[in-house]
Design a protein around this nucleic acid. Structure first.
Length: 475
RNA sequence: GGCCCCAUGGUCAAGAGGUUAAGACACCGCCCUUUCACGGCGGUAACAGGAGUUCGAAUCUCCUUGGGGUCACCA
């Protein structure tokens, strides 16, 4: 049974890179009928931010990434919050010391700082060499603060096979005796991840490349306990540009920012799935179901990928177009309300016009700008070289058009269109030219979410005539 | 700087010794058309550089260059 996990530390908002890591771990588990576990890594009490755990729950839920075990839903291997597992880490830390794979260290921060200043490349194993286990135990019994350090062999090479990068070997001399258990009794990531992954039966560890090299150290701990090492899948980061990682700190959008911007969660998930992984076929648009079916390690990229919002926009527009009208209505309403359109316009009509033209929901205000920016539009817009229209022709046509419209009862798009098409023949003007003039006079905008008759229908007879008259007056 | 990793168009990416080097986004053009959008058709654009190996290299090896990661009582 494949078991993967997503193990965020609750230190800030969930950004796109984190979400993608969670997504891949989820997809891999589900692609193999396995389990996906959520674990909260809050061992750094300083950096832990209140309330972030809820954001994590919420974001995963919203993104459709369902975990089988986790803090809020339980499971057989809990607790799933590291700060609640302190005793477990302590137990194993002392056990590890007994095996010789770790040792107690009493060095002060000052000595450590001095060591570093003196140019030492890493910790010098002072306490391993100068403090016997018995001495250490009595110091601890006496209440002296201590940490537990990993005892990295002084010679040799460590290696393992990453499922995407292949064999990764590192010389032990390039590895440091990192702290496993801090003086506050909390474990560091270096220790907790191993203990928990083993205890929680995680057999595929999927995480960022920043752990690619240090995984060699973690394997030493598995070995010391006689535990089976998991499989590893390391992921390159998502970049803002070729030099910078995407990060909340540099003001890059988080999942919820994109949601707020009017992206659909399905589109975001779809897009980030494709950033660093590709299916064997050419599909670009995949549902969660399809992602699960298509996901495989071979498709994972070995190089970082740059986040490209225009492509996500395009994907989003695909999802918007296929939304049921009611779903679109639900999303568009807040935007209409914010523009103060309530009771002025028929939302259903607006929806029909906009659903195929909007890429992300927040495009709506821009697309509807012509509704209130009308009075002083540029009269030069009447000029259209291809259709051979200009102000003069508009001035000539508009009064006739107004008279004609006055006599039309049905102000729905189709009736208007048929009627005015005939009208254009009667006055001997190309229908496209007539519609151009009419649309400009009606909206004052070069670009509108629909043609002349659609705009007229949107305004309704009374307001359409008012606008046409106002435009005529200015000519 | 030491160590580890990576390198195909502007971006995402197929490609695993022999291809006219896919496809998508973006961009440009044409068509459709009551504007715009959608849709359809087409176009511009890439194997970082240099040595090898080989009959043959985007694919294998080495070097250079560029980029990323890592060297915390952070994860």
């Amino acid at each position: 049974m494949v078991r993967t996990r997503f193990a965020p530390s609750p230190t800030g908002y969930m950004h796109i890179g984190n979400l993608r890591t969670a997504l891949y771990a989820y997809l891999f588990a589900k692609a193999n009928n396995g389990k996906f576990i959520l674990r909260i890594e809050d061992t750094d009490t300083e950096r832990t931010v209140e309330g972030v755990i809820d954001i994590i729950y919420k974001t995963l839920k919203q993104a459709g990434i369902e975990y089988d075990e986790g803090p809020d839903i339980g499971g057989d291997y809990g607790p799933y919050i590291q700060s609640q597992r302190k005793d477990i880490y302590n137990h194993y830390a002392h056990k590890l010391v007994e095996t010789g794979a770790a040792y107690y260290c009493f060095c002060s921060k000052e000595r450590l700082a001095q060591l570093q200043e003196s140019g030492a490349p890493k910790y010098d194993k002072y306490c391993l060499r100068n403090v016997s286990l018995e001495q250490a135990r009595s110091k601890i019994a006496a209440g002296e603060p201590y940490v537990v350090r990993q005892n990295i062999p002084e010679q040799g090479v460590s290696s393992y096979t990453d499922l995407v990068f292949g064999e990764i070997s590192v010389d032990y001399k390039d590895l440091e005796d990192n702290i496993l258990l801090k003086s506050d009794g909390m474990p560091t990531y270096n220790f907790a991840n191993v203990i928990d992954d083993h205890l929680m039966r995680i057999n595929y560890v999927i995480r960022g490349v920043e752990y690619l090299t240090s995984t060699n150290k973690y394997n030493l701990i598995y070995d010391a306990f006689g535990w089976e090492r998991p499989n590893y899948i390391h992921l390159q980061p998502i970049m803002k540009d070729s030099a910078r990682k995407l990060s909340k700190r540099t003001g890059d959008a988080s999942f919820e920012d994109f949601i707020a911007k009017g992206y659909l969660s399905e589109a975001i998930v779809n897009y980030i799935a494709l950033l660093g992984w590709s299916p064997k076929d050419n599909r670009e648009k995949l549902s969660m179901r399809e992602l699960i079916e298509a996901f495989s390690i071979e498709g994972i990229s070995k190089s970082p990928s740059i986040f490209d919002e225009p492509k996500m926009r395009w994907l989003n527009s695909l999802y918007i177009k296929e939304m049921p009208p009611q779903a679109f209505a639900k999303k568009s309403k807040p935007y209409y309300d914010a523009l103060g359109l309530e009771s002025k316009f028929d939302y259903e009509t607006l929806d029909k016009l906009l659903q195929s033209r909007v890429e992300i929901m927040s495009d709506i205000p821009e697309k509807l700008k012509f509704l209130d920016e009308f009075d002083n539009f540029d009269l030069g817009l009447f000029e259209n070289k291809k259709l051979k229209t200009d102000k003069m022709i508009a001035k000539e046509v508009l009064p006739k058009l107004i008279e004609r419209l006055k006599r039309i009862e049905n102000f729905d798009n189709n009736s208007l269109f048929e009627n005015l098409k005939e009208f254009s023949a009667e006055i001997n003007l190309k229908s496209s030219a007539l519609f151009w003039i009419m649309r400009i006079a009606l909206t004052g905008a070069q670009v509108t979410p629909g043609g002349a008759t659609e705009m007229a229908a949107l305004f309704g007879k009374e307001r359409a005539l008012e606008r046409l008259q106002a435009a005529y007056k200015r000519l």
